[in-house]
Design a protein around this nucleic acid. Sequence first.
DNA 1: TGTGATGTTGAATG
DNA 2: GCATTCAACATCAC
Length: 262
Amino acid sequence: MPELPEVNTVQQYFNATALHQPIDEVTVHDDYIIRNVSGEKFIALLTGRSFTGSYRRGKYLFGELDNGHHVQLHLGMSGDLKYYLDPGDEPKHARFLFRYTNGYHLAFDCPRKLARIIYIEDLDNYIKKKGLGEDAQRISREGFLALAKNKKGTLKGFLMNQKYLAGVGNLYADEICYQARVHPASTVGQVDEDTLRLIYQKMQEILAFAVDKNAHYRQYPEDWLWKWRKEGHPCPENGSTVQKMQIASRTTYYCEGWQRKY
DNA sequence: TGTGATGTTGAATG
DNA sequence: GCATTCAACATCAC
């Protein structure tokens, strides 16, 4: 579920299901994903509390508690939330769940266990210490350009580095590079400013569209790379075939000849 | 059977 | 200290 638009969708789900109702009971099936406190401690910290709001920064979602503390709900590769009444509807890989006063449950489902749940007393301090970059949708164009200056790494590695900007992952990085017509392996510092502005603009358009569609990729335009992102597929723009290579340690797809390399 | 997958991290390297 | 790369993490699906 995991890049910015997907996490935004989960945040809306969280807001619609988790806020302003006391947590009667916390059940922990597997505390592997709870990284900074034990399952026991987690139960003690949350029982009787309620969530009053949420804050999302890139792929990082934080539930705000009525004591001012926060719970980080990072989805990893396969995290998801499910709200349900009948205990029989508990998802298969629920690692922990809350039962509310109204009898409903909210479960954190996570097959691959790469999620990261953190109990945080001081959110500002946590984010600062972590060095988490500004949200990709909220960063200013000037801020983006300043970050890109003199970077020696690849464009894709830059876009995906959460310390620079938070929210872009593997799929959206490829989409942004494709639509801006820039090769993902380009050296960031070599890309001229007009092109960086275009990359920023495409990033905003793509993220806004995906957020608007609640990250339901089936509703994405047919000409998005995402729709035919596989090796050897013909590129609709110039008749070349889609290439596959590793960039910044991630599988990357692009159209040779369509995307200029700097 | 083996491979790869929308994630991050910490160690290693330049 | 900073920037960058990459193996490791746990599980499932093709």
